[in-house]
Amino acid sequence: MKMGKFFAVLVLLTFGFQGSAQCDDAKKNTKELAYNDVEMAQADIVDVAASLEDFSTLVTAVKAAGLVETLKSDGPFTVFAPTNKAFSKLPAGTLDGLLKPESKGTLSNILTYHVVSGRVMASDVVSAIKSNKGEFTIKTVSGGKLTASLDGDSVILTDESGGISTITKTDVGASNGIIHVIDTVVLPE
C-alpha cells in the first residue's frame, strides 16, 4: 500500500470510524501494517502532524521555534496539538508576531507548554482525573502546569491563565509518542 493511502486509512480509522465490525477489521489490518511497515514505524510526531493538513500552522510554528529536532527525538512525548482553527482563535496579529525570529523564545515556551514527557494515553488522563477528585495537574516540558478535568465525556485543559481547551481527538500514535488534538491554544502564565 502506498504511504499516502496508508495515512488516509490511518487518519480515517483514528478519527472516528470506531463502531462497525468492518471498521474493527480495518483497524486490525492497519495495526498489522503499521508493525510491518518500516516507514510507518519511523513516523514521529512531527511527520504525523505534517501529514495532516489541520496541523499546518502547528508545524510552521514548530519550525519557527526550532523544535523540529526535539520533537523528532526518541521521546516519548505527549503533545496537546492545537489545530489550525485553534490558532485562528488567537487575537489578530498574535501568531504573525510569534512567528518572527525575535519571538523564537516566546514561541518555544508556548509550544513546549503543549508537550508532556512520556506517552500519556487518553485513558491515563481520565483515570488520573477520576483518582484525584475531578482534577489532575499535568507538568509540561516548559515547566508550566495544565489542569485536566472532565466536562461530561470531554477532557478539558485549563491553562495557567485560566484559558480552556477541549481535547477533541485522542491517542493519535507516532513512533515517539502520542498526539491529542485540542481546539484552543493553551498559554502559560
Rank of each mutant, 00 (worst) to 15 (best):
E135Q: 08
L33Q: 09
V68C: 02
C23Y: 11
K139C: 08
A128S: 11
A65M: 07
P91V: 05
A92I: 07
M1V: 11
S131K: 14
T106W: 08
M40A: 14
F136H: 02
D183P: 04
S123L: 13
S117R: 11
D159F: 07
G4P: 09
D183C: 09
G93C: 04
S142L: 06
N176K: 10
K100G: 04
F136E: 07
A34E: 14
T60D: 12
I164W: 09
S108K: 14
P101V: 04
K130W: 03
V120P: 01
D25V: 13
S103L: 06
L111H: 02
G152F: 08
L146F: 06
A65G: 01
V79L: 08
Y35E: 13
M40L: 15
Q22S: 14
T140A: 01
L52D: 05
L71I: 03
E53S: 15
K130E: 07
V116D: 03
I129R: 07
T158W: 05
D44A: 09
T170I: 12
I167V: 14
K145V: 05
G93V: 03
V11E: 12
K31Q: 15
G177N: 03
S127N: 04
M3T: 13
M1A: 11
L67H: 03
D74L: 02
T57P: 00
I156H: 00
F55N: 00
T70P: 02
L13K: 11
T70D: 02
D44T: 08
F55W: 00
L99N: 05
A81D: 01
L107T: 02
T170G: 06
G163T: 08
K5T: 13
K145G: 02
G143C: 05
S161L: 14
I182V: 15
I182M: 12
A148F: 01
V115P: 01
I179H: 01
Q18P: 01
S51Y: 09
Y35G: 14
F55G: 00
P76R: 04
L95F: 11
K145C: 08
R119I: 09
D37W: 12
T83G: 02
E69N: 12
T170F: 03
S165N: 11
K5Y: 11
T147C: 07
A41W: 09
K100Q: 13
K104Q: 13
A8D: 10
Q42W: 02
V181I: 11
T57V: 13
P82Q: 01
S123W: 03
L10C: 05
E69M: 06
G75Y: 01
F77I: 07
L67N: 04
L111M: 02
S127T: 09
T14S: 15
S149A: 11
N132Q: 09
Q42K: 15
G163N: 10
I179E: 03
P76K: 03
V11W: 11
L71M: 06
L98Q: 05
M3I: 15
L13P: 04
D47Y: 10
L157I: 01
I167R: 03
E189N: 15
V185T: 04
A86H: 00
G163Q: 10
H114Q: 06
P76G: 06
K85H: 06
I179Q: 02
T30H: 13
Q42Y: 05
T60R: 13
T170E: 07
T166A: 10
D124F: 07
S165R: 03
G19Y: 14
T166F: 10
D44H: 12
K28Q: 14
D153R: 04
A92R: 14
L111A: 02
P82K: 01
D24M: 14
K31I: 12
S20E: 15
